[in-house]
Design a protein around this nucleic acid. Structure first.
Lengths: 192, 192
DNA sequence: CTTGCCTGTTCTCGATTTGTTCTATATAGT
DNA sequence: ACTATATAGAACAAATCGAGAACAGGCAAG
């Protein structure tokens, strides 16, 4: 989005939010400070072509904003307690949150992280990294062969990879044996 | 990538990230400190030839960064096993997956669903519904007062709400006491 | 209905910006 | 001094921009 496009977009968003309906091209022109409707119209065309704006053709004031996958955050839910409403209906833009360059997805196989709430079949989103803070959950490559999802601790000159499952013992390695490939960024599990 | 190429690449990346669109050759020139557009243009040519930069010919400000995939699905990861690559680098479009009308988000409070891998502080995305199949995890309103996240079973004329935590006993209700508000659609947990 | 204004849309024009190519100059390495 | 390379700067065509004119359809008042 170029600078004038951004300016026009902001104006439209603000107008729709405050007035409840789309501004006219002339109103945008005056609001932004242009002296010609043609110019404004050209920018609107561009925005519509990019899908950043929707237009109901043949209607006056027919501009609408495309729906973003915003998911309203309603409150907290607990065992046996009512939903504690969160005052302003915050919206979480998952698209924004996940717009993290380099992110990739792996599907978890096995139960070794079950006590961390990571189950067989879950999707984990990994942010590429060469190192990680102690206690982080990472994708670690061991001896250049085996990649595994574990909690990592680096101290006393050795690396510990700890599963979150009492059935698995922590594994100890020399630092040169373990290569961090990425850090756990997000867990996603779909039920339907 | 030579040093000036690296410098120009960084400038372009930064500009696209902050402004949302490509810089012009003149802007790069000023930003880096050159006094000629020709030189900058030569480096851009080189970057395009190497595939490190894309150019929409015939358009002004038509430089784009090679597209990074949404979130590539790389494979499965397991305890002590190598990543089992998935042949085609499938891409998961979370935008698409979450574009489910009516979806709303709740933050989980408490440990009553811990054995289902749902932890304190997790986000659950709920799809509004009036009923749910046996065994589904639902948001249930009890006696019109208390909302809770539980696994639901309806049989023998009574409703069982079962926590996934041995510390909590299943609770039995008459059907008219329990109102399903929604079905668990997705679990999301952010680590960073 | 008709009328008149607002609105959306399309077009042209001149000025400016931009991508591109070219040549000349400066610099570094041999 | 010679060559290779990097930079500066000029020049040109195309794209873009803002202004303004013109026209048809929407919309509400009479």
């Amino acid at each position: 989005m170029t600078q004038p496009e951004r300016q026009i977009m902001d104006f439209i968003e603000k107008h729709i939010q405050t007035q409840g309906y789309s501004p006219s091209v002339t109103e945008i022109m005056l609001g932004i400070g242009y002296k010609s409707r043609g110019s404004v119209h050209r920018y609107i065309d561009s925005l519509v072509r990019k899908g950043l704006l929707l237009r109901e053709s043949g209607r006056n004031r027919g501009l609408t904003l495309p729906e973003k996958p915003k998911i309203p955050l309603l409150g907290r839910i607990a065992a046996g307690m009512p939903i504690e409403a969160i005052p302003e209906s915050e919206c979480v833009d998952f698209y924004e949150k996940l717009n993290c360059p380099g992110l990739y997805q792996l599907i978890v196989s096995g139960d070794s992280m079950i006590d961390a709430g990571i189950c067989d079949g879950d999707s984990v989103l990994i942010q590429p990294a060469q190192s990680a803070p102690n206690g982080a959950i990472v994708v670690a490559l061991i001896d250049g062969e085996n990649a595994t999802l574990k909690r990592i601790y680096q101290r006393d000159g050795r690396v510990t990879l700890k599963a979150e499952n009492p059935a698995y013992e922590p594994q100890y390695y020399r630092p040169e044996q373990v290569q961090v490939q990425g850090v756990l960024f997000c867990l996603a599990r779909f039920y339907r």
